[in-house]
Amino acid sequence: MTVVGACEDEDYWPEFGTLLVSDDGAHEGSGPFSRQDTRVQPCGTIVRTGHGWLEGAAGDGPHVVRMEVHDAAPGDDSSEWEDVVEIPYRSLSGKVGLGYVTGGFCGDVCTLPAAGAYRVRAARRQLAEDDADDLWLLRFWPAEPSPPRWFRRRAAAVPPPDPGWRTLFGYGVTDLLWGLWAARDDTGGTTTAALLRWGEQHGRSTTWLDEPLPAPGPHELDPADVARQVGCPVPATLGGMLDLFVAAGVLADDGGYREPSVTPNPEDVLELPVERRSRLIEQRDLDRFRSFAADLVSVVMWGGTEQTLAGLAERTLVAREDVRATLEWAARGDLLHIAGPLDGQFVTEVGPSTG
Rank of each mutant, 00 (worst) to 15 (best):
D83H: 14
E28T: 13
P159F: 04
D268G: 08
A115Q: 10
P161V: 04
V65Q: 08
A115W: 01
D295K: 14
R279K: 11
H27K: 12
C106R: 03
P218K: 05
S30C: 14
G355H: 08
G255K: 13
D162F: 04
W150K: 02
G56P: 05
R90W: 05
L127P: 04
L244E: 06
D37N: 12
P218I: 05
P273E: 07
P233D: 12
S79A: 15
A6M: 11
A248E: 01
T305S: 14
A115V: 01
G44K: 09
V350N: 07
W136Y: 15
D285F: 08
A339I: 05
T49F: 07
G256R: 15
L209C: 07
P216R: 07
H51T: 12
E28I: 09
E86D: 12
D254M: 10
G179I: 08
G239H: 09
F346H: 04
A157R: 08
W136I: 02
G97D: 00
G351Q: 10
T206V: 11
A293Q: 01
D60L: 14
P216N: 06
D76T: 15
D131P: 02
V40G: 07
E321W: 13
A57E: 10
W329C: 01
A293I: 02
Y100W: 13
A193T: 15
F169R: 15
I281G: 14
P160V: 04
G340W: 08
I281T: 12
H337F: 13
C232S: 02
C232E: 00
V246G: 01
T187C: 09
L244C: 09
D130K: 05
D130R: 06
R119C: 04
A193K: 10
D131C: 07
T192Q: 14
V297I: 10
A248P: 02
D285I: 02
D131A: 10
W198L: 09
G170A: 08
G75Q: 12
W53I: 11
V299S: 04
V269R: 13
S291L: 15
T348I: 03
D134Q: 11
D254C: 13
E10A: 14
T305W: 05
D210T: 12
A122N: 03
I46A: 11
L335W: 14
G61V: 11
A215E: 11
D322E: 12
W178T: 13
R121A: 00
L272A: 06
W150D: 01
E220T: 08
P145T: 01
Q283N: 13
D322I: 02
W165V: 08
G304H: 04
E8I: 15
G255Q: 11
P212T: 02
L244R: 08
H51W: 12
T192H: 05
V246I: 03
L112T: 00
E275F: 06
D185S: 13
C43L: 03
C43N: 06
S261I: 05
L238V: 15
L177T: 14
V158H: 00
V318D: 00
R35K: 10
H51R: 13
P145F: 03
A224V: 02
G164C: 01
L213A: 00
E129M: 07
C43M: 06
G217I: 09
A123N: 08
V84T: 09
